[in-house]
Design a protein around this nucleic acid. Sequence first.
DNA 1: CGTAAAATTGATCTGTCTCAACGTGGGTGG
DNA 2: CCACCCACGTTGAGACAGATCAATTTTACG
Lengths: 241, 241
Amino acid sequence: MSNSKPLSARLGVYLQSQDREAIMRLARQARSFPARQDIARENAPETIIRILTEGMACRYKMMPGGRRAITGYVLPGDFCDLGVFVSGRSGACIASLTPCRVAEIPLALMTELLARPGVLRALFEMAVAEAAILREWLANMGQELSEQRVAHLICEMRKRMEAAGMAQDGELHLPLTQEELGESVGISTVHVNRVLQRLKADGLIQLHGRTVTIPDLARLETFAEFEPGYLEPHAAALPAG
Amino acid sequence: MSNSKPLSARLGVYLQSQDREAIMRLARQARSFPARQDIARENAPETIIRILTEGMACRYKMMPGGRRAITGYVLPGDFCDLGVFVSGRSGACIASLTPCRVAEIPLALMTELLARPGVLRALFEMAVAEAAILREWLANMGQELSEQRVAHLICEMRKRMEAAGMAQDGELHLPLTQEELGESVGISTVHVNRVLQRLKADGLIQLHGRTVTIPDLARLETFAEFEPGYLEPHAAALPAG
DNA sequence: CGTAAAATTGATCTGTCTCAACGTGGGTGG
DNA sequence: CCACCCACGTTGAGACAGATCAATTTTACG
C-alpha cells in the first residue's frame, strides 16, 4: 500500500525493505522488451533470475499442435520464474504483453542472499502463493460456463492489478488480445468474442478497447464465483501458533 | 531410490536424511483415516502441519453448484498442504482415497526447524515442484481431446507412483473412481467411462479393476504428449551457478 | 446374501470449435 | 496528410465433443 515504487509491488508484500533493497542492488541490468516478445525460453539453462519491474508478461507453454496455453500472468515485482532457483533452468516460456522492464540478477550472487532467512522464506511464500493461484485457475477451468471463466480471470486480474497500483475504481487496462484471453481460459478466439459480448450485454463489464470497466464489482464476483481469499496468503495468518 | 521407508519418498528427495529424521521426530501422532474421508477442510485454522506417510489422498475444491474439482494428488512423503506454513490455514480440502496414515507435526515445533537452511530450502523446492505440476495440469486441461487428458494423468501418476515405490513395470493401482478421474481432468463421469474404453480399445492401457497396465509406455506417453521433465526439478540442476 | 456404490450403455441436447468471410482501427510510408 | 495495410475484432453456418438424463449391470462390502 505504502510502497514508494511500483516495481516492488509483490516483492514488497513478502520482503522486508532491507532485504528487498539488497536484492535490487544485485540487479546487473534492467533490460527492456517491446510488447509481445519472448523474455525467456522454456527449459533453457539460466545463470540469472529475472524480476519484472515494469509492464506485464505471461507464462506460457506451447502444446504440440501449435496451440498455446497461458499458465499465469507476471506483474511488476514478481519473479518471472522461481523454478530457476531450483533447477537452474527456466520452467516455462515468458512473453511480454506490454513493453517491459526486467531486472536481471546473477544466480550466483542471489545464492548468497539466500542465507538471509527472510529472503528464502519470501521465496517459499511466493511459490506457495503462485501454487494457490494455479489451483484456482485449475478449478476455474473445470467450470462449465466459459462466461464464468472469463469473468473469473477479470476479477482476479482486477484484484492483483489494483494491489500493484495498476488499476482502481473497478477500471483496469487488460493488455490482452482476445486470442490471449482464450489461451488463458481454454476457449477459442471466436468464442472469447461472443463471451465478452454476452458479459457486456448482461451489464457485468464494459469495454472500451482493452480497458475493462466493472460497474458492479460485487455482481461480477458473484457471477464469477470469485472468492479472493487465495490471493491473500497473509490475511488469515495467525499470531504465533 | 534407496529409501528404506516409503513414508519418506518425497521428503527423501528434497531433504538430507538428518533433517528428514528431525522432522519425523517431531510428529506428535500418526493418525489413521479410512478411505474417502476428509483429512483437512479448506480454510480451517491449523496448528499442525500434515505429512502423508501411507496411502494416497487428493486435494480438492468444492465449486458452488456442488461440483468438485480435484487439484492434485498427495503421495507418501508429501506435505498435505504447504500453505499452512504461510497462512496458518489449510488452503484446500484434503481427502483420503485409500486408507491413509498421516503424521501431524505441531506448527510451533516445525517453526524452529525452519532455522535449518536445508529445511526451508526443501519446502521452497517442494512448493516450486507443486507449482510445476499444477502448470502442467492447467496446460493439460486446455487439451482438446479428453483421451489425451486422461492418458496424461495416467502417465504422470505412473511416474510419481513409481518414484514412490508404489508402481513398477508399467503397472499401477490407481485407487480412483471414474467420478474422481473426471473431477481431475474436468469431464463427466459418463464420459470418463467411454474415454477409458477407447484407450483400452486402442491398446494404450489395460484395466483390471482399478489396476492400470501400460503395455507400451512410450506409445502412451507420445499419445498423451507427456514430457516428464516437470516432475524432475533437480534433474537439470547446474553444479554451481 | 443383500444392498449400495460404481461402472456401463443408450439417446438426446447443447456449448464450443472450426472454417470462412467481413469489418475496423491504428500505425507506417509515400 | 492521406492511403494503405495488417493485426485484431466481429459475425455466420455447420460440425462435433462432451454434458445430461435415464436405465441397467456389475462390483464391493457389511
